[in-house]
Write a protein that binds this DNA or RNA. Structure first.
Length: 424
RNA sequence: GGAGAGAUGGCCGAGCGGCUGAAGGCGCUCGCUUGCUAAGCGAGUUUACUGGCAAAACCGGUAACGAGGGUUCAAACCCCUCUCUCUCCGCCA
């Protein structure tokens, strides 16, 4: 959530941001929040005064002569009833305020473009597109090489799942190891993370764990859900902690499975591995001091780029427009890799600076040099989303006969395999 | 899954119904002192919200002893539920 002080001091600016983000000003209602806050604080003052009175009277009771005790107890008892009623009013007001507060998105960086999904600004293009005659897409290539099986996955689990076989199964491990290695060299601490997390952590990161619009698989009768990304578990990792200044920045590179219901996503470009319910992902995550987060955002992007560059996969970097940003993000870069099968770029990574929006909910703080406690900033980025990376690797490295050459940087992880042969 | 024990401040560790936001120790910070990288003495040392104020400092209030409920005028302390940790047994990778 956003610092309430900022909202109070700049209500008009926040309203503009809500419009720019394409959010509903009736659902994200700044004026209602400010009113609810006033109301809540006024009630708080009253309740606290009553509590103070109760505490004082109560504390005096043991020193009273026996004859006066009965009357004093009765008096405090009456006060307590009044207090109980006022407290439940107060709780309702706090609830209302928090609900309104949670609906307010993060600020926007100055250079976030206006507009929606189609208004992202391309800030960089890298690499020459491969010259392929009649390129095949990864679904066809997967069939020809017998390395991806969607049909049987549909039988066993359902649509949107897949088996990776043979070289593709090895490629998954290779992509993970390669990305992990790059991140570790850049100072990130490797982590293998839980694939389930408590709903409170999910919502702290900004995921909605239950309800009709949820993207998340939840576990019945338990308050835990399957994670959609290791961002959730890495973000929750140090929740409710005050970090030491020397600990910062914390850099994690986490491997997890990612589970997404993709509710309402049908009909979009989703053939094959592009939009699936489960995939493996290597996630970069940084917890840092507030003043460092913009620089970290650039560093994470650079690391993501270096992975694609080494794999020699053409890509472009886009700066996501306000209307397409998640509520926690101040700014977001996506990298879209070239996917010859669709003759277009497709999103393979994403990195966001979420500033203190998530740390405020997850309560991740640090003690600064003056001993003051303040919220950290959090950033996340994709090192490798295996399923989508597999698309661009297979499609960019396909040969005219349908065989696939293993990219050179992945060879050390491929047990001597250099080419995926055609089998069907 | 069965039986038991436990969860207190940065750490260790008391307290088991009423000046206990929390003894004592360690650590840390500041000051003083000391002829020897150390020691001694004194003071300080949680956080959130909130009021005084527009803000900082400061002063006050409220809340927090794993979490949530309950009993009571009053709960770290009694009761219930949950979570987590440890020990033993069983089971299983």
């Amino acid at each position: 959530m956003l610092d309430l002080k900022i909202i109070k001091e700049n209500p008009e600016k926040i309203k503009e941001i809500i419009i720019k983000r394409g959010m509903n000003p009736k659902t994200s209602d700044v004026d209602a929040l400010l009113a609810a806050d006033e109301e809540h604080r006024a009630a708080l003052v009253k309740v606290e005064a009553l509590r103070s009175e109760r505490n004082n009277l109560s504390a005096a009771i043991p020193k009273l002569p026996a004859a006066e005790k009965g009357a004093a107890v009765a008096k405090v008892k009456a006060l307590k009833e009044e207090l109980t009623a006022k407290e439940s009013e107060l709780n309702a007001l706090a609830e209302k305020k928090n609900e309104l507060w949670r609906a307010i998105p993060n600020l926007l960086a100055d250079d976030v473009p206006d507009g929606g999904e189609d208004d992202a600004i391309e800030i960089k293009k890298w690499g020459d597109l491969p010259k392929l005659e009649n390129p095949r897409d990864h679904v066809v290539l997967g069939q020809m090489t017998d390395t991806i099986d969607f049909e049987r996955a549909a039988k066993v689990t359902g649509a949107g799942f897949y088996y990776l076989k043979r070289e593709a199964a090895l490629l998954e491990q290779a992509l993970i190891s390669f990305a992990m290695g790059k991140a570790i060299k850049a100072g990130f601490c490797p982590m293998s993370t839980p694939d389930l997390a408590r709903d409170t952590i999910l919502s702290g990161i900004g995921f909605n764990p239950r309800g009709p619009e949820t993207q998340v698989y939840s576990i019945q009768d338990m308050d835990i859900s399957l994670v959609g990304t290791a961002e959730i578990t890495l973000g929750g990792y140090r929740s409710d902690e005050v970090l030491k200044l020397e600990e910062l920045p914390l850099q994690f590179v986490g491997l997890s499975h990612c589970f997404r219901t993709e509710a309402g996503a049908y009909g979009r470009t989703s053939r094959g591995l592009y939009r699936v319910h489960q995939f493996s992902k290597v996630e970069l995550f940084v917890i840092c001091r507030p003043e460092e987060s913009p620089a970290w955002h650039e560093k994470i992007l650079a690391l993501e780029e270096s992975i694609l560059q080494e794999l020699k996969i053409p890509y472009r970097v886009i700066n996501i427009a306000a209307g397409d940003l998640g509520a926690p993000a101040l700014k977001k870069y996506d990298i879209e890799a070239w996917m010859p099968g669709r003759n277009a770029y497709g999103e393979v990574t994403s990195c966001s600076n979420c500033t203190d929006y998530q740390t405020r909910r997850l309560n991740v703080r640090f003690k600064n040099s003056e001993g003051k406690v303040n919220f950290c900033h959090m950033l996340n980025g994709t090192a490798t989303a295996v399923s989508r990376m597999l698309i661009s690797v297979m499609e960019n490295y396909q040969n005219s006969d349908g065989s696939i050459t293993i990219p050179e940087p992945l060879l050390p992880y491929m047990h001597g395999i250099t080419t995926i042969p055609v089998r069907n």
